[in-house]
């Protein structure tokens, strides 16, 4: 027996009421693709489920002013197929398209993926590169948290699904001279955990030959998507040359913490971070019409 109660609320307010009434005994389920495994393995125990799948107000991808806003119940398939994301924040569309299989992408949601706190969740890597904020509603009202602060330990989220709900992700729409890229290396072309995934957001000067700003997110390297801050700092203001890429490669391997896993050994992951970091920058810059000078 997994749980005794099952609620299907239709609004966020109803969710909050259920959460309050159940006093920590009931937890939110979004797509359920991760939670079902955890419950079956006995890693999560709960008396009741609040299935938020029917809350229409949490399913959207839209541009508002300078921002792109994504409802937490948006599925991976919807992200992958979104024309807006493909055009303006490709890193997220590509990342969502790499998750599991079509079946998983149709059920799994971006909010669920983040609350589940897998450090290598593809969408988490993308959202980290995009410097996204999560909007969370709970008994004390609403708050915003940068994605990087949602992870408190291995598989542990800042968001407590027995008390609060992520409603939305927000990030600044990449503008002029800004671009993104997503890279994934896995042992199989579908249904495989990544050996490595890496998301990049970057901004060049108008001449497209100097990197003005950059954000790099890598997984699975830590309990959370790893922001390669030192590499970012090293890259800022540098000319887009092979030499710069080499330096970035040498810098990033000092700040990642890969571990041996069935996907690959730490040493290999280190080598691959170098390869895919360079590829991501080349692709993002190429997307702007720039190129890396020799």
């Amino acid at each position: 027996m997994y749980w005794e109660n099952y609620y299907l609320p239709e609004t966020v307010d109803e969710v909050l009421k259920h959460l309050k009434d159940s006093n920590g005994n009931t937890r939110i389920m979004a797509g359920g693709t991760d939670l079902m495994i955890l419950v079956r393995k006995g890693m999560v125990k709960t008396q009741g489920i609040i299935d938020i799948g029917n809350i229409k107000e949490l399913k959207y991808i839209r541009e508002e002013g300078k921002y792109i806003k994504i409802g937490a119940l948006t599925t991976h398939s919807q992200l992958a197929e979104s024309a807006l994301l493909k055009k303006k924040a490709r890193v997220l569309a590509l990342a969502a398209g790499c998750v599991g299989s079509p079946q998983i992408r149709n059920a799994g949601t971006i909010g669920g993926n983040i609350v589940n706190a897998h450090s290598a969740a593809d969408t988490a890597i993308a959202l980290t590169a995009l410097n996204a904020q999560a909007r969370i509603k709970g008994p004390e009202g609403e708050k915003e948290k940068p994605l990087s602060e949602l992870y408190t330990g291995v598989g542990k989220s800042f968001v407590d699904p027995t008390k609060e709900i992520i409603t939305e992700f927000v990030f600044e729409t990449p503008g002029e001279n800004e671009s993104t890229a997503f890279m994934r290396h896995a042992k199989r072309k579908a249904l495989a955990l990544p050996i490595l995934n890496l998301g990049v957001w970057l901004k060049t000067n108008s001449g497209k030959n100097i990197l003005e700003d950059v954000r790099i997110a890598v997984g699975p390297m830590d309990y959370k998507p790893l922001r390669a801050v030192e590499t970012e700092n090293m890259l800022k203001g540098q000319p887009l040359t092979e030499k710069t890429l080499k330096s970035a490669q040498e810098t990033i391997i000092k700040e990642i913490k890969p571990r041996d896993s069935f996907q690959g050994r730490a040493a290999y992951k280190t080598d691959m971070v170098k390869v895919f970091l360079a590829r991501a920058i080349v692709e993002a810059v190429g997307d702007l019409g720039g190129r890396i000078d020799g």
Binding site: K187, R188, K189, A190, L191, L193, F262
Partner: peptide, 11 residues
């Protein structure tokens, strides 16, 4: 079948 990887249609 998540970590024992038989080929998919894409492979």
């Amino acid at each position: 079948f998540n970590e024992y990887l038989l080929p998919t249609a894409l492979d």
